[in-house]
Design a protein around this nucleic acid. Sequence first.
DNA 1: CTCACTGTTGTACGGTTGTATAGTAAAACG
DNA 2: CGTTTTACTATACAACCGTACAACAGTGAG
Lengths: 207, 207
Amino acid sequence: MTKKTTAPKFERIAPDARRARLIEASIACLAKGGIQGFTVDNICHEAGTSRGLITHHFGSKNALLAAVYASIYGKALEKLTRSDTAPQSIDELVDMIFGDSFLSREYLNVWLALWGEIAVNPALQVEHRKNYALYREHIARAISAFARSRGATVDSYDVATILISLVDGLWLEQCIDQSLLSLDRAKDLCRRTLAAVLAPQPARRPT
Amino acid sequence: MTKKTTAPKFERIAPDARRARLIEASIACLAKGGIQGFTVDNICHEAGTSRGLITHHFGSKNALLAAVYASIYGKALEKLTRSDTAPQSIDELVDMIFGDSFLSREYLNVWLALWGEIAVNPALQVEHRKNYALYREHIARAISAFARSRGATVDSYDVATILISLVDGLWLEQCIDQSLLSLDRAKDLCRRTLAAVLAPQPARRPT
DNA sequence: CTCACTGTTGTACGGTTGTATAGTAAAACG
DNA sequence: CGTTTTACTATACAACCGTACAACAGTGAG
């Protein structure tokens, strides 16, 4: 009789790795069903674990949601602010922003859920404020360079705010109904708007 | 002894009026707690009725949500497209869009919930497509007039799309964290962007 | 090998969910 | 006044919710 090499009844991994898996599973659940799909049952089933692990690793479901937010924004920012990817043109900047994997359509429900939560949850609000400031700072710097080379005098923070808002709005509409707006057209509108805003001030029309 | 005028045990009103009340209560619940607050218990308590009425008047909770969407967008459009309010300037147009009562901060959760639902619910998607087309049509017409008077040659639908997206994005960010962006600044950024996009094409810089 | 540690499971719990349905009562009609 | 209609209430129900907790099992230290 062979030695009873019982298959392990569960996989035991490092807490950090398990947390990462649960966060990943949470994102999948949010993407699939919005905040209503963000349930302990769904998440643990998606992650292939039993129901107890969320409490064990995060303390509560809400704490997990906060971790999800930090993870998503953190990754997006990390990729965006890597110094070797400073955009050299408007086209590059727009492509870079839209190219962010977290701006794919499957993340619509994730962002909607997070936005709703940020507006209500003070802890998330603090986190958001910090991240948004970094994000805008980075984009403003690129815009400042573009403006200088074009001889336009603009407040780069204002333009960055415009750009970020426009991207958010275009992305949102494109997600909600793709028949109304394609990603390519959204990018194009974005580029044209940015070019117009960064155009050197035209002389007042002589009437 | 007076006749026993027993107080009526419940108020019996016309189905349309009752439906309107339930829709109103639904909006209040959505505003307060997002889609998670949109529960039969919450809604009926808010509306002051018993739990059975949603099924009776709408068939299901989901059908009620669709009715909520139709009601909100319908009212917003009705107000916007009243012919006697055609905006005469960029300022007026921006003020008009931002002045919509459904773009107040308390509607953040309502819109987030509806957007998430539109992206998933085909019936809502059809409704949205129709409403959005009307909305954009109306704004494009105003923009077309502005462009003509400024000697700018632009596709008014493109500019309308840009404006709508920009408003959505600015509004969203302003709702999520009011410390980052005030409503007045959002309006100002909006006006300036529109003015830039509608500026007559500048001659190429002579280098 | 033995023991302590802790990641993991499984279940139990009270509360909430949406809907179905039986029964009540208010209004409309003759 | 009596009858019919239907808006409305109230309850029942199975499914699901998040969390607590006791027991189990994999792992490394000694």
